[in-house]
Design a protein around this nucleic acid. Structure first.
Lengths: 212, 212, 212, 212
DNA sequence: ACCGACGGGACGTCCCGTTTGT
DNA sequence: ACAAACGGGACGTCCCGTCGGT
């Protein structure tokens, strides 16, 4: 049985497989029902994993799995944003792409999926220290990336931070409204208004050159 | 067993009181923990009401109480917005007052309280038809009021609707970020950026016609 | 359906019934398997009670039920000792009756039953404050009653306390040895030796009159 | 795969060490929490051993380890008693030393440690045949040694057996009472009363023959 | 109208033992 | 010999809803 290089890989694969499936299932479940709305049985069935294995990979139980799911989601979305940004497009284009992708996901899932962070955020209490920390870090991460993009296109630091906060807020708030309304309209309107305001501002600066 | 007329009046008072306390307790609980995060026993203890009384007033149980709490909240916030609007201030001033009030409430409650609608919204599924309907109506109500204000100050219908969606989204998203971060900063930045964009637009008005 | 007097009785009966059956089942189970060895399902089946009712009567859960069972046992044994003592027999006779009753119970139950207090005592840790308190009070109660009997028959206070401690120790230790050996012999020998020592002491005092 | 001679020796050392640590950890845990109160994971962590190694050394699992721990404890205590007896002291002195040592250990461990045999004894059922056998043999061993000492100092066989049963019972019962009371007093009183009774008997000897 | 005992199901935890792979 | 992932069952908790009794 020749096994030349990287003999750690097979073990990792198996580990990542179960662990990863658990995290994926939790991510998916969180955005549909929130932390308390997810039943572990339901989740384990979705991940095709027995009960004991959860406690093995996540000694902290459901909470620890949720933290891992949040962190994985943050990383995924962060990478996605990085990809958008790396293309060098101006903020307005990146924003449009981001929001349109969210709209498409909403429609594709029958308005069931949302943002896993948001759902957990609103039912978390100060006692869930680890969850709070992961969420806080996650939202900060999003703002940080967007602020970086804005700075790269000429915004001052303070301005970039404030705009980034608004953009993330609008994204999350729009997603929420569209989810309950089971209609892409609120999200669409939110994105449209946001882009319009940003575009008009540039236009109003007098140079009129790079507005969208 | 004779029952003299008007004996119902004091009884009604008591009933409304109990009903009201249940609704208030649910409203409060929803914004802290979300629908599934609230235990019925815990809630009944907070309202100082026995088990049976809940099903007296809300045969639909926990869900019906949540719907009532959502509707009460919508009415309360709607009335609050009406009050702000009735003063005749321009949208920027109303917006500032609304967001600042939210910040103060956040700080006063140690960043525990948020928006009862939002928390429920993110863990609700399509099966909770009555809850979804109440939420959808509630958010639409908010947008409607704000759009009305904007129209009254010269926005076109489509424009007013889109801006209203953005404002509600920003409000909810900012609240969410501040809640998990246990800091008013995200909410403050969100409000500041939003008002700045709106103000700049007005300042730039008249120079062109290309507001999307 | 005439119901003349004491109409509180029926409710009490029902309540005591379920609560009492739970306590009786726990008492029985504790002396067979100890606290951690008892499964709640098993116990509820024995008491013919559904799961929810336990938490209703004992909000403190399994531990609270165990405490109640311990207290009930202490009361029962205390009353039994009182009955023995009230007959006015000398300590040696009381002791013999007590130990022989224990032997008979051992044999009747196939050496399964023991002392509910003892089993819990040896697996309790300092964290189970309520259980520890109930056990400590229980053993003190036994010693107190026996010491009282001894004092009533001429022992000094210190002497009575020490002898009472020995008698309780011998009773519990003998029960334990007989239980694991599945033989009444150790308990029998323990009781015989203890009574012999007590009798000889009286005999050695020179008066020789009331040694058994 | 060649395996050079004597390579097993160091390996054996390691094995004995791991085995020994497991047994020591189980002994310690048994006297604090009893058989069912000990978690296997917790125990393995205390012994710093992975899961697999337990089933390597004890194919019978937790039960087999408990049996080994009981046997080791019996051997240890037996050797200790042998040491006391070998000095040639009279039974009263040996008894005093034994009981005082137990008191010191109680106080040193904050009244947490007790007798590993006793704790297991009281929660064992007839189904745990191997455990019951080990316990029965253990208690018999203790009685046997003490009876031997008594015979060596002039007691008849039957008398020695009965007194030995009493002594072991008192020892175990006193330990139990002191453990839950978190006070050495019950154990002290038990020992004191027992020694007093034995001493008085000797003093009274020769006056008659009516022991029992 | 009010209350609280009842009911049983599902939750999250964590148990003990096995299996599979180095 | 060691290590860790697996496996699923049972534990104790507590949920939400009902129903009979004042």
């Amino acid at each position: 049985m020749p096994r030349p290089i990287l003999q750690t890989e097979p073990r990792n694969d198996v580990r990542i497989d179960t662990r990863g499936r658990l995290i994926a299932a939790m991510s998916d479940a969180l955005q549909r029902r929130g932390f308390h709305g997810v039943g572990l049985n339901e989740l384990l069935e979705a991940a095709d994993a027995p009960k004991g294995v959860l406690y093995h990979h996540f000694p902290g139980g459901k909470t620890a799995l949720a933290v891992a799911a949040i962190e994985a989601t943050v990383e995924r979305i962060g990478a996605y944003l990085d990809g958008l940004i790396a293309k060098g497009d101006p903020p307005l284009v990146v924003l449009e792409a981001w929001i349109e992708a969210a709209q498409r996901r909403l429609e594709k899932t029958g308005f069931e999926s949302g943002c896993p962070l948001a759902a957990v955020a609103l039912e978390s209490t100060a006692e869930d220290a680890t969850i709070r920390a992961a969420l806080t870090a996650g939202f900060a991460e999003f703002r940080h990336r967007i602020a970086g993009l804005l700075r790269a296109h000429g915004e001052t630091d303070a301005r970039a931070d404030a705009l980034a906060a608004l953009i993330v807020s609008a994204y999350e708030g729009g997603l929420m409204q569209s989810r309950v309304a089971e209609s892409a309209e609120p999200m669409r309107q939110t994105g449209q208004a946001l882009r319009a305001l940003l575009a008009e501002r540039h236009a109003g600066k007098g140079d009129g050159s790079h507005a969208r």
